[in-house]
Design a protein around this nucleic acid. Structure first.
Length: 270
DNA sequence: CCACGCTCCTGCGCGC
DNA sequence: TGCGCGCAGGAGCGTG
């Protein structure tokens, strides 16, 4: 499941291959994604030059003079640079062709999306109301304090709410709360400022570490596939039910919050 | 405004 | 070894 570090790694991986390049054609083999790929996508995109690739939360924004392609990898989406003649495999939904190379979008579970917009992408309804980037200065304890005020929902659920802060998926929410020593069930509105500061630092550290790890394993190009891959062996609690807490040795507990698997140390996290 | 639950989908792990 | 069941999960959206 691509989370923000994986999306950022994907962005950095593909950008050198397509920045400044002009789309020669678009092949849509399977329109079925979270929202059906528009029949007009090919004509909208063909002939456009990709000026740059931005990221907002887990959305990648492929900017052109005429409009922007908003791309979300969903749960199982991935992007690869392939020779345009490489035969497609199962779940290869879309090729965006640049000369002899193609940017190939693959998505078995079809939770991803490709949307074309001619308006200011920052005003697009999917982008407009997103919370701050977790690695920016806007994301700080005071912001969390305001967003959490009077909220009784578990802090983990709100930490994963993209309207409060973008890019913190299930795995990193678990990890950040562990590092901050905060119980994931705790009512968000009942966490004092100093602990929110610790949470902010933990979110930054967890995501920053993962991006750095992705950067170091970046090969000839990139992937954004399944699990955190390169980061997997650095997980302290996620997926470690009944194993020893790396901090105190108590067994890691697994519960469900908001229908999502939640792992924490009942000793270290209060 | 807020809380919560439903939904989409397929690969994979597990139990038998 | 094979089969079938159920889980996993981002995030938009509907409901109360």
């Amino acid at each position: 499941m691509p989370e923000l570090p994986e999306v950022e790694t994907a962005r950095r991986g593909i950008a050198p291959h397509i920045k400044g390049k002009t789309v020669s054609s678009v092949i849509v083999r399977d329109r079925r994604l979270r929202w059906p790929v528009s029949p007009k996508l090919a004509s909208d995109l063909t002939g456009q030059r990709i000026s740059d690739i931005d990221r907002r939360g887990k959305y990648l924004l492929f900017n052109t003079k005429r409009g922007t392609l908003l791309l979300h990898l969903g749960m199982s989406g991935s992007l690869r640079i392939v020779p345009k003649t490489r035969p497609p495999e199962k779940h290869d939904h879309v090729d965006i062709v640049f000369g002899c190379k193609a940017l190939r979008y693959t998505d078995p579970r079809r939770f991803g999306s490709l949307l074309w917009t001619t308006r200011d992408p920052m005003r697009h309804r999917l982008i407009r109301d997103l919370g701050p980037e977790p690695l920016s200065d806007v994301f700080d304890a005071v912001h969390l304090q305001a967003a959490f005020a009077k909220r009784k929902a578990p802090v983990k659920a709100l930490l994963m709410d993209s309207h409060i802060v973008v890019g913190v998926g299930n795995i990193y929410a678990n990890e950040a709360l562990f590092r901050a020593g905060i119980n994931p069930k705790r009512a968000a509105g009942r966490i004092a400022l100093p602990r929110l500061e610790k949470l902010v630092a933990s979110v930054r550290a967890v995501l920053g570490d993962a991006i750095a790890a992705g950067g170091t394993t970046l090969r000839d190009f990139l992937v954004a596939d399944g699990t955190p891959g390169y980061f997997q062996n650095k997980l302290d609690v996620y997926g470690r039910e009944d194993e020893d807490c790396v901090n105190c040795g108590a067994p890691v507990r697994a519960i469900v919050i908001g229908q999502r698997a939640t792992y924490y140390c009942p000793q270290c996290q209060r």
